[in-house]
Simulated assay, not measured.
Amino acid sequence: MNVSVTTEAQEQINSRITKCEIEGTIIEIEHDTDGCGCVVSGVARLMQRDQVPAKYETLHSNHERVLYIFNPQMKVFFDREMIIDYRNGRFQLKSANQMFNPRLKFVPLA
C-alpha cells in the first residue's frame, strides 16, 4: 500500500508531532472502531506512535523521515493508493475512488 502526503499535510503533521525530532516519527493510519458497535462502522484517523506494534505493516510514502504504518487486518477498509491532504483547516484521507474521512483526526503522543 502507498500513501501520498501533500505538501500542506506534511507541514501540518510536522508542526503537530510531539517529539523534538521529526526523524523516525511513526504515524498509524488507524481504522478506529471504538464506540461504533461494528468494525464496518469504523472511522480512519492518524495516530502518532512511539513504536511499531507487532505484525503491523509499513506504507510506502513520500513523507520523508516519517514512517506510516497500519494494521494489516484493517487492509480491507483502505485502498492500495491513498492520499493524506490538508484542506480548509482539516486533514483528509482519500483515494482516486473515494473519500475515507474528510475530517481526519490527528492524535499526537500523550
Rank of each mutant, 00 (worst) to 15 (best):
A9Q: 11
Q10E: 14
E11N: 13
N14G: 07
S15F: 04
R16E: 14
T18H: 12
K19Y: 03
E21K: 08
E21C: 12
I22C: 11
E23H: 08
E23N: 11
I27K: 06
I27D: 08
E28D: 14
D32P: 00
G37E: 05
C38I: 04
V39A: 14
S41K: 12
G42P: 13
G42T: 07
V43Y: 02
V43R: 04
A44M: 04
M47D: 02
M47V: 07
Q48R: 00
Q48T: 00
D50Q: 06
Q51M: 13
Q51A: 13
V52S: 07
A54T: 15
Y56G: 12
E57G: 07
T58V: 01
S61Q: 04
H63F: 12
Y68D: 07
Y68W: 08
I69S: 11
F70W: 11
F70N: 06
P72F: 10
P72N: 12
M74V: 08
F78T: 02
D79N: 09
E81L: 02
I84V: 15
I84Y: 08
D85Y: 08
G89V: 03
G89F: 03
G89K: 03
R90N: 06
Q92D: 06
Q92G: 07
L93R: 06
L93G: 07
S95K: 00
A96W: 00
N97G: 01
Q98D: 02
F100Q: 01
N101M: 03
K105N: 11
F106V: 01
V107W: 00
P108Y: 03
L109M: 05
L109Y: 01
A110I: 06
